[in-house]
Design a binder for these strands. Sequence first.
DNA 1: GCCGTTTTCGGCCCGACTGTTTTCAGTCG
Length: 571
Amino acid sequence: MNNFAIAGVLREIADLLEIKNDNPFKIRAYRNGADIVANHPHDLASLDTPALREIPGIGKDLASRIREIAETGDAQFHRELIAEFPPTILDLLNLQGVGPKTVATFYRELDIRTLDDLERAAHDGRLRALHGMGAKKEALILKALDERKRHAGRHLLPDAHEAAAAIVAFLRERAPAADIMPVGSLRRGCDSCGDLDILASGAETSLMDDFVAYRPVERILGRGDTKSSVLLSGGFQADLRLVPRESRGAAMQYFTGSKAHNIVLRDRAMGLGFKLNEYGLYRSDDNTCVAGEHEEAIYHALGLDWVPPELRESRGEIEAAAAHALPRLVDRADLRGDLHLHSTETDGKDDVRTMAGAARETGLEYIAITDHSKALAMANGLDERRALEHAARIRAADAAGSGVRLLAGIECDIRPDGGLDLADDCLAALDLVVASVHSAFNQDRQQMTDRLLRAIENPHVDILGHPTGRLILRREPYPFDLEAVVEAAARHGVALEINCQVDRLDLNDVHAKLARERGVPIVISSDAHSRHALGTLRWGVVVARRAWLAPQDVLNTRPFAAFKAALRRNR
DNA sequence: GCCGTTTTCGGCCCGACTGTTTTCAGTCG
C-alpha cells in the first residue's frame, strides 16, 4: 500500500464519520491524518508503530490504523462504517451544496444511495418534502448533478493561472484604485487548482456586480457584499472576496492558506494572547487591532519572519520562521541553464539553432540538447551513430558561437530491465546524459525500483529525468521505492530533475524537498519540444520553491564551468 | 482522535452566504 492508498482509506473513514454525525474533532483528526499521510515523503507502510507515532498528528489509534491498512489493505473500523452506509453514498458528498448532514438525511429518509437515486428523487419532487428542504434547494441539487457530469473539478496550475489573470485584469479595469490579486492554492503555487480565489481590497461593493456579470460566468453560486462565487464556462469555480483596505494583509494571509498553515498560525496567535481572522490580528483582552493592512506585520507580530506563500503547507515553515531559518528560495532569474531540450533531430519542433536563440532571449547562458534515443521509435529516436553525428553538429554550432553555450547530450531511455538504450561508449562520448523511463509503466514496485537503481548505477548517467512518471490529473506515479532511489542518487552524485512540462512537474514539491534533505543535486529543466516551451521553466521554479530549494540546491543556477564540473561524469 | 514548559482532561480556527427559518442549520473555504 502506498501513502496515497492509505490516505484514501483514512479520508473515507472521515467522510463516513461525518455522515454519521460523529465527534467533529475526531473527524478532523482523521482528515488531518489523511493529509499527513498523502503528503509524507516517506513510505509510511514501511514504518512501525513507534515511528509512525513520532509524526505530529498521528497518535495511538491512527498509527495502528495505518499499520493495519498497510498490512491488510483495509481497516476493520473502515469496514464497519461501510457496513452502516453503502460506499456509493460518498459520491453524494462531492456535490456542490451537499454536505454530510444532507447526505445522511437523504439516506435515512429516502434511502438515497447513489447519484442516480438522488437525481430521480429530485425530478420526482420528493426532496422538497424533507425538513429544511424546499423547491429551491431541489433545483440547486439538479444543477449540481448536471455540472458534475459536465466538468469534474481540478485544473493544471498554468491553466488556473491564466483564467485567474483574466478575471483580475477584468476587475482591475473596473476598480483601478483597488488592490486585486489571486490568493489560495494559486498563490501557493500548487500543481493543480480546484478553484480560483480572488481577493480585492479597497473596492466599492459594486465590484461584486461586475464580478457576477463577468462574461464567462455560467452560474452564480452565491452573491454577497463581501463574498461571491461563480462557475465559469471553462469549468472553473471562482470566488471573489472583498475586504476593507486596512484588512488587506490579514485577508491575503487568511485566503492564501493553506488551511493547515492557518490553523497552526491561529493556534500560535491564541497562545500569544491574540485572535487572528481575515480582518486582522487582535489582542484577545481588549480587541485592539495589532496588524491587518500588511501581511508581513502579522507574521512579525507573531514572532515570525514573513513566510513565502509556496511554503505555507504546515511542513515546518512556522518553526523555521520562528528561528529565522527560512531559506532564500530560488527564483527564475537564478537559472542560468536548461538541461533537457529536444530538437527537430527527433520529435522537437525547432532546430538546434532556433532553440539556442530562444534560450539566449530568455536570459539563459547554456543549454543541453537532449534528443530521444532509439527505443522511442515514434519520436524518431537516435541510435548510436546518429547520436554521435548529432553531437558533432551541436559541438560545431557551439564552436561557431550562438550566444549560449551548447552541450551535446541525450535523453536516453531506461529499458524495462534497467539497462540503457545506447551503448556505454556512445554515452561516454557525450557531454551529458538524462536517463528517463518512457515504457513498461505497469511493472511492479520491486521491478521498477531495481530498474531505476540499475540505471543510476550506470556511470554515464548524470540526471534522472521526470523520475516518477506521473501526469497530473491523468496518471499516478509508477510504483517504486522513492527513498531507495534518492539514496542511490545521493551516493552516485546523480541529479534528479524537476521536469517543467506543465502536466509533469516531476519531481513534485514533496519529493524534491526530500531529495534536497538527502543531499541530492536538483536540476530544473524545461523538456521543451519547441522554442515556446522554454517559458515553462517558471513552473518548475514554483515547484522548487515549494520544495524549499535555495539557488545553491539547484545545479543549473551555477555558471557554465561550475555546472559542468558538478556533473556526475566530471566529478 | 490528538495533544500538553499551567494540563492525562478538556480543549480543539473562524466567518460569510443561502435557504429555510422566525433565530438557525448546513455548507463552504
